[in-house]
Nucleic acid binder design. Structure first.
Lengths: 333, 333
DNA sequence: CGTGGCGGTGTGAGCGTTAACATTCGGAAA
DNA sequence: TTTCCGAATGTTAACGCTCACACCGCCACG
């Protein structure tokens, strides 16, 4: 009796327990008034038959899928992952499942996925990923709430949650100043990239020379380091950990000591870079995991009828390591 | 008329087109025999009303969800991502959507997700992630096919698809020998990790000294490099790109030239490491993307009633860069 | 002129579940 | 004894869609 050719339904359970489907439903969902003995009998039958309620049928009846779509605009990369995980975690706690869609920055793919998600009647959508600039809204007048995480929508009425990159940069600068550095330089990514711009703008009042814009790579960090060698400076604020590492490598092989001669702070707090660098890098952490979690919670709230439109800015955290550890200074992490 | 308080259903479309629901269904799905004019009229009505077929209802009727679950056993990391993307891509081409589950190597979470997926009536499940060893099956007697990607199941009857790590290691060794190196050393990850073991075993016949087991980190690479400095060798096969980079850094700062004095090959072909290293690293590529894609296709086949049980081994590719580029030798990618 | 066949369309059951409503039955109150 | 109430359970109509089948003309053929 254990094995059927089809999956076991609530009717099978009801029959096995000698009750009607309605009663079985009540017993399994703790609704209505039932004798404790009956309830138990139904549950035993369900266990015995290996019954798993069909979420599809339930969905059709009650109108909610308890599923959200997650569209990543850039190809899923180093930034999307913590975001996704944070979001997935927060959503899972809310009994939500996540449909994964990798749109690869291709508008056609994105629209295709959007239709798929709507067809599947997701309760909401979170859009994540890195972008050089804010992105246009997914589509106008969607029947479900949408939250943008890390990327922000160009429509200020959309709900976006983003890190306070300017604030993070400011923290980095302040720390460098706090350990006595006055001649700070900034080397970062491409000027057309809004992250590079925002971080640079926050840093510029404290800089001893104009920011060096380039790429987000270690190679560029090395190159910039070499360019700086005949200038006078005692601190580098880098736009990314990779850049920072490149800079550090060049400086050290040119005989400069880090942090004694030059203190260095990176950005992203990417474990691989930050710990492998010699010395380990102080860095600005955007708390992408928390960002994903926050986005998920905003989405859950919106689904429950309490939308929070607008740009939500979350603080960055400065993580200190040896690359800014001067004698007597605090050292963390 | 455009906006209803509820989503527009096929009845609305049928009514608007002046036909019955059955006819509307046929028109929208290209079934049965219909007058071209009728078909068009229905479609126009559907477009006009913004109709999106309810996949949930269809699923309930036809019994297939066109959804698969993807469970990552380790927390989603550097290895899972290309796997996931490859799988997602291949599945998407088969009209399948992917439910993402991050089990974080926690059996409780894994079972929870498994139940969720079964409840949602997924058509199949792919299990991905890195593991020190083969993992036990998800559960016995699942009603849907399961494919393990990268990890393999301890049950040989399960369908797993894994990279030919031994073959990859052999390729690395052969290449080193082909460029004339005879005194090869191997430094790799922890001995209890099956990847380290397998790769080392394949390399050991060609080695000039026993493999150095340690960690999967750059720091260990540096440490091992230092340990090797007073030995005689002309090539290093590293168990990972991070280790390789650590080794290279140490060797170079000790005055050894790479590749002239010592040729170095890494493993994983992780872009960030491989290109940032100086010189860029030759490396063994496990083609994780292809692995994910293959896993997805095996799953699709199994769903369509053509299971391919057993361990499927896929070849690795050697990617050559400057760290093994001796004068006159071929240089790629 | 009757009949069969076929193109075109409508009808209705059913997928598995839930929830509103109906029914039954025992016991307490009148 | 009748009546009524409430606890316990049964019945059934949805949810939106598809598919097998029924139906209805019309034309061709015998």
């Amino acid at each position: 009796m254990r094995k059927l050719d089809r999956l076991v339904t609530i009717r099978d359970v009801a029959a096995a327990a000698g009750v009607s489907v309605g009663t079985a439903s009540k017993a399994l969902n703790d609704r209505g008034t039932l004798r404790a003995e009956t309830r138990q009998r139904v549950r035993d039958a369900a266990d015995r038959l290996g019954f798993e309620a069909n979420a599809v049928a339930r969905t059709l009846k009650v109108g909610r899928t308890y599923t959200v779509g997650m569209i990543t605009t850039d190809s899923i990369g180093r930034f999307s992952i913590p975001l996704m995980l944070g979001a997935e975690d927060a959503l899972g706690a809310g009994q939500m499942s996540v449909l994964l869609c990798d749109a690869r920055d291709d508008p056609i793919r994105e629209q295709y996925y959007l239709r798929t998600l709507l067809t599947r009647r997701v309760d909401g959508i979170v859009v994540t990923g890195r972008r050089a600039q804010a992105r246009p809204p997914l589509a106008p007048d969607l029947p479900v709430p949408v939250v943008y995480a890390f990327v922000s929508s160009t429509d200020p009425a959309d709900c976006s949650v983003v890190p306070d990159e300017a604030g993070g940069a400011a923290k980095a600068i302040e720390h460098l100043q706090a350990i006595g550095r006055r001649r700070i330089v900034h080397v970062t990514g491409p000027e057309h990239h809004s992250s590079a711009q925002v971080r640079a703008s926050a840093a510029v009042p404290a800089l001893v020379r104009p920011p060096l814009f380039g790429e987000w790579s270690e190679a560029w960090g090395r190159q910039a380091g070499a360019m700086l060698l005949n200038e006078e400076f005692d601190a580098v604020f880098a736009g990314s950990d990779q850049i920072a590492r490149g800079v550090v490598d060049t400086l050290r092989s040119a005989g400069r000591r880090v942090p004694e001669d030059v203190a260095v702070i990176g950005f992203d707090n990417w474990d691989v870079m930050v710990t492998a660098s010699q010395p380990p890098l102080s860095s600005v952490d955007m708390d992408l995991d928390g960002l994903g979690r926050a986005a998920a919670n905003l989405l859950l709230a919106a689904i429950n009828g309490e939308p929070a439109p607008g740009r939500h800015v979350r603080p960055c955290r400065l993580v200190l390591r040896e690359s800014t550890a001067i004698a007597g200074a605090v050292r963390l992490g």
